[in-house]
Design a protein around this nucleic acid. Structure first.
Lengths: 82, 82
DNA sequence: CCACATTTGTCCGTATGTATC
DNA sequence: AGATACATACGGACAAATGTG
């Protein structure tokens, strides 16, 4: 298994997109099915990354609607660095 | 499915044990296998709760050793209160 | 209001990798 | 070298909420 887990790569990618402005607050992310195709993996890593970012408050998932970038979450906080 | 997911119940239970002093900083939690027996569920919800608390910095998991209560995590922070 | 498709949420089972004891 | 234990990943299944027609 690679030194860099897939879910961490997805997390970093989403964070980069948010920081770059490619994903703006209030915007909707692609569906999980789309992300699995984009990252060429199963749904587990995708949902794991989404759940972690949701836990950190950097993302917000709504059942039946999608995952959105909340307004006011530009500075990612990291309580634990490893 | 119940209104209260199992993993949330596990999270709340661990938080309660930490707040009560039943789990003190530096203490080691039971293994995942033990927790699955205690909560009568599979490993998924247990690992999910553990991972979320780890992400929030309230717990600290170490590969091959166990999950520990870090020193200085008595006040649970919740970035998103919905 | 009901039916349907879409999408996220939760859960179970299994396998492999890797670190620790 | 073996046992224990957590981390990651894949597979599938069902529930719940939403939006649309």
């Amino acid at each position: 298994m690679p030194a860099t887990p897939i879910y961490q790569q997805i997390m970093a990618d989403i964070r980069t997109k948010v920081a770059s402005g490619e994903l703006k607050p209030g915007d909707k992310l692609p569906s999980i099915a789309e992300l699995t195709v984009a990252y060429e993996c199963s749904a587990e890593p995708v949902k794991m990354a989404l759940r972690m970012l949701n836990t950190l408050g950097e993302l917000q998932g709504h059942q039946g609607r999608g995952v959105y970038v909340p307004s006011g979450a530009a500075t990612p906080s990291r309580p634990q660095a490893m």
